[in-house]
Design a protein around this nucleic acid. Structure first.
Lengths: 338, 338
DNA sequence: GCCTGGCACTCTGCGCGTGCGAGTGCCAGC
DNA sequence: GCTGGCACTCGCACGCGCAGAGTGCCAGGC
């Protein structure tokens, strides 16, 4: 077990390194934090911390920098979540309230998060399967062609064009629209499959094929991997990363382009609160030198999606966690209102 | 006027520089392109080209690199558009055909363009005002709250929540929905304002306020600056830019984050064909060392939006122009089908 | 008049050696 | 268990010299 002072030393190292971006030495530490001991003592503590794997030296005769394990201990035990100030909260609220629709909410959230944290922001659209159905609309485009439009309580709209096996009259279409909505309106999307499975039976034989096709398209849009969307922003903040650009920034940009990677990244975090994944804790190799701070958000008590930021492992964890948490809270409120 | 040979020298310089990314000297030029003259002669030509401002030397004793003016001449007079090969065309078509909805079409187009050109791709969503109305849907969320959903022929869907000044019954809502659709369906969005202006008069006095509110929300969504959306991708390609990262990549990423800047960038190009804006021809300062290759695309003969790529001024113009043009053509086809 | 070969000149990039400073590890003493 | 002192190790910035690429210019030839 590490003594109290050694934990303080670790905390001081993390704070200084995050601030200065440079390896921190024993002398500088004692000067900036009044630890009440001499540099030599700190050196012993540092050696111990290094043995335990919490800090490391980039070169033999340089200061120490925290390892992923060091940051982990810092986040878990040594630092809290720094709450936003009142003016910051007001600014967040004002900025988000101007949104006109869901795309706008998501876009504004991304900008806001990127600005607040000065890092790359990632916001997932509310999951369909975890939302409730507000309305299902069917439009006839051509005799054997139907457009299906899904609208959720969170304001998300999905649409698909369905090619029907047989012509489908306006009357049948209206009938299907009415039956469909009476069954699924205000129900959770996750329940939709079981709610509609016997629907074709209510129709004339000639229309059953079309009804089934429409329904299967509806179910397809709800399949997990299709229904997830997200938006990212603040990539310009990557340029503040470090000095050795090409090697650090490239893989990160590449990872950010892969929606699948990002969705997995956000998906992994199960904690109901703010989740932090540090460096190599991220499965994706390109993100081994970054940390991901994420949290779920939702209109009610339940999370309908996640949002978060991606930044260097050397980041201001308490501040970032505070910002992410606050933004998630307000986005939830905005969604509940619309 | 420049002699034929000097133009050839310029062309050779552009081609070599684009290939090698290094200033090109007189000796290397004569070796790689059989110009039929000696390096000394080429040197004279180069001096003349430099006097005219087509090329420049980064340092006193280095080779030459093309200036923006040089690239301009190259694009206008010395190079054509390189058509895609048949396999490339097939690949484009296959890739785009898998799309399930408009978001997917746009997302795939961005990926495709980024991969083909190895540059940053920008794709604008089909403009509302230049599209045709397919359907307008009205949903009652609460007695005095209505959701307005617009669907275009290009598959774009916009939705807005309207707070009504007075409760609005289901019957009135159905009435408005029917009247609205009969007036605007299959009409161009640009014509919508004049088509609906007298609509409130058809309603009972108590409903007029609400009808007006709904209509004004409808018109607001059509206002130019609100209705434009776009998607970008391939930012990882920026890392191939050059060696002096922080200074070149940063402002570009920042510019790309500003939707307004990008929309202006695409909007400026009026040419019906492929437009190229080189270096300082771009109004935005951060993009002074990049070129933008863009073109309109549309389901019919008319362009409903633009797409393009942003890359270093040192880019393969013929190839990029060919890729951009081909992708635009196929996206147009896909949109026409849906 | 235009092209060519030759020549002197300029400048960048690279490798190398040096000195400085920051930081460490260890040890003896309190 | 803490402290001050001391020798040691490196990384980094600086200055130097050299090689190489490329240029401009000039005199001579077709």
């Amino acid at each position: 077990m590490l003594s109290e002072r050694r934990l303080q030393v670790l905390r001081a190292i993390v704070q200084d390194y995050v601030g200065t971006e440079e390896p921190v030495g024993s002398k500088a530490l004692t000067e900036r934090h009044n630890l009440g001991v001499s540099p030599a003592t700190v050196r012993n503590d540092m050696a111990a911390l290094e043995d335990e794997g919490y800090i490391a030296q980039p070169h033999t005769s340089a200061g120490r920098i925290p390892t992923d394990k060091g940051y982990r201990l810092f986040v878990d035990k040594l630092a809290g979540v720094k709450p936003m100030t009142a003016p910051e909260r007001r600014a967040i609220q004002n900025f988000l309230e101007g949104a006109v629709d869901l795309d706008d909410v998501v876009a504004r959230t991304v900008r806001l998060l990127a600005q607040l944290t000065r890092q790359v922001a990632v916001v997932q659209y509310p999951s369909l399967t975890r939302s409730t159905v507000r309305h299902v609309e069917l439009l006839s485009l051509a005799p054997a062609r139907v457009m299906l439009v899904l609208i959720t309580d969170t304001g998300r709209v999905e649409q698909r064009v369905v090619d029907c096996p047989a012509p489908f009259g306006e009357a049948s279409l209206a009938d299907l629209r009415a039956r469909l909505n009476s069954r699924v309106a205000n129900r959770r999307f996750a329940d939709v499959p079981s709610l509609v499975e016997d629907l074709p039976e209510a129709f004339e034989h000639e229309d059953r094929g079309t009804v089934s096709t429409v329904l299967s398209t509806l179910l397809e849009t709800l399949v997990e991997e299709n229904e997830e969307r997200l938006m990212i922003g603040g990539t310009a903040n990557l340029t503040r990363f470090g000095h050795d650009f090409p090697l650090t920034i490239r893989p990160v940009l590449e990872a950010l382009e892969e929606q699948v990677v990002l969705l997995k990244l956000l998906g992994e975090a199960q904690d109901p609160g703010v989740t932090v994944r540090i460096g190599h804790e991220n499965a994706h190799e390109g993100l081994n030198s970054t940390s991901v701070v994420s949290v779920g958000y939702g209109s009610g008590g339940e999370a309908v999606a996640k949002l978060g930021v991606v930044g260097p492992t050397r980041m201001d964890y308490p501040g970032t966690m505070g910002a992410v948490r606050a933004v998630a809270r307000y986005v939830g409120q905005i969604l509940a209102e619309s």
